[in-house]
Computed example of a mutant assay.
Amino acid sequence: MNAAIDTRHLLPAWEQFRAATDIAPIRSKAHYARMTAMLEQLLDTAQGDERHPAMELADIVGDLIENYETRHHPLPEATGVQALKFLMEQHGLRQSDLTELGSQGVVSEILVGKRELNLRQVRALAERFGVSVATFV
Rank of each mutant, 00 (worst) to 15 (best):
H9A: 12
H9V: 13
L10N: 05
L10C: 09
L11E: 14
P12G: 08
A13K: 05
A13D: 14
W14I: 11
E15P: 00
A19I: 01
A20C: 08
A20T: 10
T21K: 09
T21M: 11
T21E: 14
D22Q: 15
A24I: 04
P25S: 13
P25L: 08
R27W: 07
S28N: 10
S28I: 08
K29E: 15
K29G: 10
K29A: 14
K29D: 13
H31D: 09
H31E: 15
H31F: 07
Y32K: 11
A33C: 08
A33M: 09
A33H: 12
R34N: 15
R34T: 15
R34E: 15
M35D: 06
T36P: 01
A37E: 12
A37S: 15
A37W: 02
A37N: 11
M38H: 10
M38E: 11
Q41Y: 05
L43M: 15
L43Y: 12
D44K: 05
A46V: 02
Q47G: 06
Q47V: 04
Q47S: 15
D49R: 04
D49W: 05
E50A: 15
E50T: 14
R51M: 12
P53Y: 07
P53V: 08
P53I: 10
A54T: 10
E56V: 03
E56N: 11
A58T: 05
A58N: 03
D59W: 06
V61A: 04
V61T: 04
V61S: 03
V61K: 02
V61Q: 03
G62P: 00
D63F: 03
D63T: 10
I65H: 10
I65P: 05
I65C: 07
E66I: 06
E66G: 06
E66V: 11
E66P: 00
N67W: 00
N67H: 07
T70R: 11
T70M: 08
P74R: 07
P74V: 09
P74E: 12
L75F: 04
L75P: 05
L75T: 14
P76I: 08
E77G: 13
A78E: 15
T79A: 15
G80P: 04
Q82M: 12
A83W: 00
A83S: 02
A83M: 01
L84N: 14
L84I: 14
L84F: 13
K85P: 03
F86S: 05
M88K: 04
E89K: 07
E89S: 10
H91P: 03
H91Y: 11
H91R: 10
G92F: 03
G92M: 01
L93M: 12
D97T: 04
D97S: 06
T99W: 04
T99R: 10
E100M: 15
E100S: 14
L101D: 05
G102M: 01
G102L: 01
S103C: 02
G105K: 06
G105D: 09
V106A: 09
V107M: 08
E109N: 12
I110V: 13
L111A: 11
R115F: 06
R115W: 06
L117C: 10
Q121R: 04
Q121E: 12
V122D: 02
V122H: 00
A124H: 05
A124V: 01
A124T: 04
L125G: 10
L125S: 04
L125F: 03
L125P: 00
E127M: 07
E127F: 07
R128Q: 12
R128N: 08
F129Y: 00
V131W: 13
V133E: 14
V133W: 01
T135D: 03
